[in-house]
Write a protein that binds this DNA or RNA. Structure first.
Lengths: 337, 337
DNA sequence: AGCGGTTCGGCAAACGATTGCAATTGACAC
DNA sequence: GTGTCAATTGCAATCGTTTGCCGAACCGCT
């Protein structure tokens, strides 16, 4: 007979009282660690189950000096609205949630507006997480580089650059850009345009790859149209471009969302895709197959990317050696080109 | 002169030693609670800043008996792939992240495959969060109802029903459906079809509202096409329907993604939108304005929804009275109808 | 000098777990 | 009867905070 209301078992202490053993014994029974009589362990585990008792994760983590959570950060550096709408980042987030849950970690989501150069340091020192995954380096590569020097468990989704010390997983954007170029050439397109914000490292690499896939004499002819990532902004940029008389016969867009904007704006100006103009996107978001016409695009394998990000992070947590990884993109042919 | 390496200040104890005061004083200084000499407080705060010290959130939470985190759960009940791709849920997630961060709470993201009827109880008993937001009741309303009886801080995004005890925030789906019906009638459409999975409570309400917006004699004529939510599945359903000779002149789709599938499949079968067929979607996801033709749709205010969800949850945490809320939808006219 | 009233800041007990160490027990051999 | 050893379990310190309670110091007043 317990002293207090035995109805609810809140702590290991309560359970110990009921079981007539010490808290250490209960702890050992429930964590399956340490030597303990088989029979005792079984008894306590059954008792715990009967009372619907589970260990308090917060206390456990405090004692063990860990948090059991991984942060996924979305820096909103130059494009405030980007991650709100970009299906690519969101799909990535979903896969990351799955991968982390599977490993018994929680996923702490945070969107950050990078302020100054110590937002990341502040976050790390708060000690809320055991590791950090950053989706998109945005314009923060200097900050990331600095932090990476003294903080290990951090992996970034995005373009790899030899200049940067931090660990990345990302699609080979240069190769992807080159694929798009070759494809448009094969389709006989010669008057080409690239739509995207080359201030974003990933997009810059796609643009550079695009140029590198063209014969030298064509490179100077490519029109670069600066388009932000949100649907609204990229539509505006494209509409302005067409209104100003732009009439390319081949377009490579930095993302599928941008490609959709371009097609919409072009249609508005009486320019038919793919009859008069071929369009190639980047990402292969799920909706790309539903556009009218369905979108030819350079596919990034999001699921594989998420898995690699998590793998790499856990190697880091286990102090194993790691290297940045580039994933090969793939051309997906549909009717827009 | 400190005994140990004074280089890193890890705990309040270290800081107390350096400052020459007791830990209680440091705690009071840093939390701005309790009476403390202004000068002392300032001094300690400066010292903390100088050493880049921040309170350990885990320990703080343990002591305070809270976790500082709110869970956002995505139940994948009947539609495995839904949340992966559905831009609506993802946009919601983004706004929730902002709202919670603003209130100083962390957002713990988890996608759950509901197993049996105690997955939610198990999650709650793990004690990792102070409250729960569930996006979409999926087919779990029985479970939610049971849990709501003994667990307060939980709010669900989705359709409200008088049958359910749990707290919801959601669009008035019935009104939205009726809007779509009236709009199609105004456009002179008489041969109507609804695309969607009416096993999902929200979609069922949209369908019901749609019917209620029609004159009685038309209701029986409406074709109900069962389409799942993923782009692939809904495209297949629509393609099969058109291949089977379906030729409606007005379509109301349960979501924008479904509407896009319908337009794509229709185009494939030589059916032009909006000339031969008007299409109305639901959600107004950012991409809806970029479809070809741009999509007429019933808009849900996601940002307001997220804010209300969080507001309601915190009222519950503060034991204030709350009631479920329905948000008025809005018809957004574009060229698909 | 003595007294009541403020302020300030320290002591130590929590929060709910883990774990090194030591104590207890029983079996067994000498 | 005593010593040894292994198996099992308990004690108590610890993780980094918060906070009720109490004592010390100081103030002005009689």
């Amino acid at each position: 007979m317990a002293q207090k209301d035995p109805g609810t078992v809140r702590s290991i202490t309560d359970l110990a009282r009921i079981a007539g053993v010490s808290v250490s014994t209960v702890s050992r029974a429930l964590t399956s660690k340490g030597a303990l009589n088989k029979e005792t362990r079984r008894r306590i585990q059954e008792l715990a189950a009967a009372h619907g008792f589970q260990l308090n994760v917060a206390a456990q983590n405090l004692r063990l000096g860990r948090t059991g959570a991984i942060a996924v950060l979305l820096p909103l550096g130059h494009e405030r609205g980007q991650h709100l709408s970009d299906p690519f980042f969101m799909a990535m987030l979903g896969f990351l949630a799955d991968e982390l849950t599977e490993r018994g970690y929680d996923l702490l989501l945070s969107r950050v507006l990078p302020q100054g150069d110590d937002w990341l340091d502040l976050f790390i020192r708060a000690g809320r997480v055991d590791g950090i995954i950053i989706i998109g380096q945005s314009n923060q590569s200097a900050v990331l580089d600095k932090v990476a020097r003294h903080y290990g468990p951090m992996v970034i989704w995005g373009a790899h650059s030899a200049r940067n010390a931090y660990l990345t997983v990302g699609t080979d954007n240069v190769a992807g850009g080159a694929m798009a170029a070759r494809h448009l050439l094969e389709r006989g397109r010669r008057s080409l345009a690239f739509f995207g914000n080359v201030g974003v490292p990933e997009f810059a690499a796609r643009y550079q790859g695009f140029l590198s896939g063209l014969p030298e004499d064509m490179r100077a002819q490519v029109t670069l149209v600066h388009a932000h990532v949100t649907p609204e902004a990229s539509y505006r940029a494209a509409a302005d471009y067409f209104a100003g008389g732009g009439r390319p016969d081949g377009v490579f867009a930095a993302s599928d969302v941008t490609a959709m904007s371009v097609m919409a704006a072009a249609a508005e100006h009486g320019l038919a895709t793919p009859e008069q103009m071929s369009v190639v996107g980047f990402d292969d978001v799920p909706l790309a197959q539903l556009t009218n016409p369905p979108l030819t695009t350079i596919r990034q394998d999001i699921r594989a990317g998420a898995r690699l990000l998590v793998d790499l992070l856990f190697r880091r947590l286990g102090s194993q050696p790691c290297e940045s990884i580039e994933i090969a993109p793939e051309l997906v042919l549909r009717e827009s080109s």
